[in-house]
Design a protein around this nucleic acid. Structure first.
Lengths: 256, 256
DNA sequence: TCAAAAGTGTTTCAGCTACACCCATGA
DNA sequence: TCATGGGTGTAGCTGAAACACTTTTGA
């Protein structure tokens, strides 16, 4: 296992350590919705037990946002809703990292030494359409998977707490903007939409109240009727692009 | 002027360029309230025309937050409410920076070269009690001053847009948490408190509605009566520390 | 005709808005 | 007694919550 990690790292850094900004990394919290579960994307590199958030580094003349898109693409993630959360910058946020440094002289040791220095990490969250996403095992990870956001087990370094903080931001985001559109397929039923809201907010919502509230916002429109399920068939809806963009751009207005 | 800038920079970097993380900087948007104006703190270094946000760099084994406090203290700013906004990371966010680089070999040139490379900047905002603050002209600036947040003129690089974005975050913050306590003196009248809300939200608020709303939250308590002004004397209030902390910690609950 | 799920009606309650009115003070 | 600002009362509106009711389908 040790050997394949070596190869993987050398491949990832093939352009040389000098092509990346030192001391700055990126981490992405990628949310997906698999009715009725809210999930988050994690990685595991060979020979390691703990799950990690996907991440990467920034090239010297690359915009921060561009670097995030590039890294997401390595996992097969495209067409996402992307937003920055914040930067985590405690000097020793990754406990004991320095102890793992090899003292050899190979390129591998050089990489390990580089990656084991102090890093400030800029965290983004991304919302993707779960069922339209095909994960790729990128150069840096041999295993990618979705885990239930309420069952974070075996997360490495400070990534569990990063996910928890990001989850709170997602709640705030949902209350201000109809971001659900980025997590659902083209068409969906009201039940699926409500399930998503319930998953994010982590509580149940009255069916009638929910329906009226969403309909009044005018962000969804009926397109069809589904006849495949048990019980009374439900209508299919899609997001009204125009209204959706409009309410995305709107200033949040509440309180005073 | 050129000469004093040289001295100043050499002083600031006396411990050597190696003591700071390269490519990462900090900028602070410091808000103060001088009834009825919301103000922001800016700097100007010798020989320069444009105003800049105060800022600095992070030491190798220094927490990000600690670096921010250290840099604020250089300006005489202490006891602040501090929150991270986001990180600005466009590769060329500072246009034409490289053109200013001298090609000499002095320590001064070395500093200029170091500071002219690509920087990712982590932006914080701070709320301070304007009338309890005495600005210090720190090593890095020869001029510090408060400017009206609605009259941003002659701001350098991308700092005007950073202030504008931060101002929006402040609005959101105010709607979720009673951050006004960090901007007002110990005691204040309802009119001053309302003036602050109006300054931040940039609109007028009904007197009666405002008073009832604040009183119901229980975050202020009456302490005295002021008799020095024209017209009917107003009551003086102070923030109730307990209730204030409680509502700071509260999850924002609105919308669904 | 029954279970299951979609969809609607309706009552109640809370909170905000706007504006009018009253109060306390100094000139 | 008037101007100036502080402080209160209240009618009307809006919208959320809760829950009961109706509708449409498959078995």
């Amino acid at each position: 296992m040790e050997r394949s990690l070596k190869i993987i790292l050398e491949e990832y850094f093939e352009a040389g350590l000098g092509s990346f900004l030192p001391h700055v990394s990126i981490n992405n919290v990628v949310f997906g919705y698999d009715h009725p579960y809210l999930k988050v994307l994690v990685h595991r590199i060979p020979g390691q037990n703990a799950w990690m958030l996907p991440g990467g580094y920034i090239k010297h003349e690359e915009d921060l946002d561009k670097a995030v898109y590039r890294n997401l693409k390595l996992d097969g993630i495209e067409n996402v809703f992307l937003r920055q959360i914040r930067t985590f910058g405690d000097a020793f946020r990754i406990p004991g990292l320095n102890e793992t440094v090899d003292i050899g002289n190979s390129k591998y040791s050089e990489i390990l030494r580089w990656a084991s220095r102090r890093f400030v990490t800029v965290v983004y969250y991304a919302l993707v359409k779960y069922h339209q996403t095909r994960l790729i095992n990128s150069v840096i990870s041999s295993e990618s998977t979705w885990i239930d956001v309420n069952k974070l087990e075996n997360m490495g370094v400070d990534h569990a707490s990063i996910i928890l903080e990001t989850r709170k931001m997602l709640v705030t985001e949902l209350q201000n903007h109809p971001v659900a559109s980025s997590l659902l397929p083209e068409s969906f039923t009201f039940n699926e939409l409500r399930g998503l809201y319930e998953a994010i907010l982590n509580r149940s919502i009255d069916r009638g109240t929910f329906r009226r509230k969403i309909l009044k916002q005018g962000i969804v429109e009926q397109i069809d009727t589904r006849k495949d399920a048990l019980g009374r068939p439900s209508h299919l809806f899609r997001f009204n692009e125009e209204m959706y963009l409009k309410s995305l751009a709107e200033e949040t207005k509440f309180g005073f």
